[in-house]
Design a protein around this nucleic acid. Structure first.
Lengths: 215, 215, 215, 215
DNA sequence: GAGTAAACGAGACGGTACGTCGAGTCTTTTC
DNA sequence: GAAAAGACTCGACGTACCGTCTCGTTTACTC
């Protein structure tokens, strides 16, 4: 195929000029960043520490990533599982999967502690914001947008459904709960959100997640 | 009374002894923090800078606030408008007001740029998280919780409505949109959220905010 | 006597304000500089290395000495023997002593390797040049100037002798020989210089230093 | 001829083999060095800067000159006027000319600011010291040595005059005055030195240089 | 109203990290 | 096959703040 899959490094054949980064250093740096993110978190991560852990000069880190944020975005994007398409054949199930993935990333996995701190830098660094959205957010949103668009074709959702808002609502709920409320995020949250978004059911308290799903 | 009026933080009856903070310094520090937050933002705010701007020794700042975060939380809490009760007599209108207030704080006002950065520190600093929730979040949530509880009594909402989740949903949508999506937040968002949460209407794209409000 | 000898710090009575340097740090830094000068020389001496060796923060070094040169000048001035007055009763002997002292400092002692490198910075750093001359050169020149002035009173030297030049000649000869010619400096050099400067004897080659001293 | 014409510096007979340096790069580098010496001085001159200014890779500079000092010595030697023989027929005049040349190089011309800094590196870099003496110092000393040797044949100077020391004295006086004393160097200095060295006249202060020359 | 303890401004302190620069080496590409 | 281009590791630069710690000096509560 001729798809120029690649992402961050690049394909020697096409470019030829520019960029001849040492792939070994490059990998060491990403690995060191990943380790240190796990050990000390985003805030306490330093470029100096990354360079030291990677056995690399600081200048080498700065040569390829202008800021800590850019480095972390790339590290995250490399270590997060690729966003597989979702298509179970049923909207409810698809959306549930999507929300569970969001929960996984925002509340459970190793990135959970990193993303909020990263997000905080977005408003003051537009370049990084764009990189973050392009490398982390957009690929995952795209998958869910396809789910929703499919549903408009089958009539499960109205043709003019505000897909963007729908995504913001469930992702925001998870994000806000983790970050601001500080309450635990259970699977029940995913179910309640699906019920609300698809069936318009105002969320009610139930001891457990399979609540209300019986209808 | 002869109670040494003062603290927004401590209870005069029990302490009485201890603490004889200079109210002038105290005010200078909060004012300096507020100014600097506006000028350089949360990240670039330094304790050193605050002390200098306030014409105060660094130790004086540290004496009363252990961290930058704690200082900023108190500054914010002092400058944010007090959360007035909401009671228009109609749930829809009450909730709309609540959401608009959230938008005001999270997306429009001077705190909009500060809160995300502040929030990022919450996961790594539980003490500050508690202070943040107690001084900023809880008072405002309480007002809305009263609105929702009133609605359960009138039957506008089911008795077992998950009020906490409801709050997380609309606040999260606003927060996420500002912080992560980076999309503009319009008043239409508030209307769409009310429609969804009260009437179960899946959000659809409309050019403007008064969409669907006809019911 | 009650002369407030002091030298580099300052007299508390008059100033009172400003300057409250930690004498312990101050000493550690000078000691570390002295050691490192001996171990690695002036060129390879770094402010960072000094701070590390002294167990002190870099900022502390920079707080009191703006440049490496200033630090080295003060170190040298502290470790060089104080310039004792010279008065043997005889001009020839006095001058011989003076030249031998110059040889000692410029060619033999621990400062011999440092002064040339230091001198090289003088032309590009007038502040340091002044400090160097005031702390190192002038005190030693003053002693010899007194010798020469005494000689003019006794008639051993003409009243209008160009004392400054006389000093430049013998010091320059030693300095140049060490630095540029790279030839060894023997005691014969001192004798030859005395003969030339006092008796006007053109220097001739003699196997050893006591040459010509018989007059 | 088959000699690979090239160097302004090396002797074709001995080297012949080895070396096929690109004459264009070679010239660019020397020119860049010369310019930068004038602009920023010896200390602030960097190999990196030279390479950039010359439009050449750093490795190319390092291939031909092992150190900054070596490069500067060669640059200087190429741009300093060749040491013409001196023979006015009169020792006094010859020596005056020699001293004036020394003043010209050490105190007036473009090399004045460079040589002290260069000299400072000599004691720590014997290879460079040798190169410096061979390319810069020796050729000029040789010319004056001839003057002095001629004078011994005519009896103007004693047969066993210490020629080396004589040179060190006048060169040292100029050098020291420029570098250490920091006093201005006038032509009177040259006259005073000649008077001392040839006639044994102790230097006296006179408003101007033609002093004492009348005798 | 004097004595005393605290809070105060000032800022030095030992540190960590910043982001930049240059050293000197090495590899890859170009002519 | 030399040399351009420039990436690489290393280490120092000089600065900014960190949070702690003396210093005297107010200041306002005791006694």
């Amino acid at each position: 195929m001729t798809i120029p899959v690649d992402g961050e490094t690049d394909d020697p054949p096409t470019t030829a000029r520019r960029r001849r980064r040492n792939p070994h250093s490059h990998q060491s740096i990403l690995a060191a960043t990943s380790e240190l993110l796990g050990e000390v978190g985003y805030t306490a991560l330093t470029m100096e520490g990354v360079a030291a852990r990677a056995g690399v000069g600081k200048a080498t880190v700065y040569r390829w990533w202008p800021t800590k944020g850019a480095l972390v975005v790339e590290t995250l994007s490399a270590q997060l599982p690729a966003p597989e398409p979702i298509d179970t054949g049923e909207l409810r199930q698809d959306l549930l999967t999507a929300i569970r993935r969001a929960v996984q990333i925002l509340a459970v996995g190793p990135a959970a502690a990193v993303i909020p701190a990263l997000a905080a830098d977005l408003s003051s660094d537009p370049a990084m914001a764009e990189q973050f959205r392009a490398q982390i957010i957009r690929p995952r949103r795209t998958v869910v947008l396809e789910v929703l668009q499919r549903a408009t074709r089958t009539g499960e959702l109205p043709a003019d459904v505000d897909t963007e808002l729908l995504l913001d609502i469930y992702a925001g709920a998870v994000f806000y709960r983790v970050l601001v409320s500080g309450e635990p995020v259970t699977d029940g949250l995913a179910v309640q959100l699906v019920n609300l978004l698809i069936d318009g059911k105002t969320p009610v308290t139930r001891p457990d997640g399979h609540a209300d799903s019986a209808h």
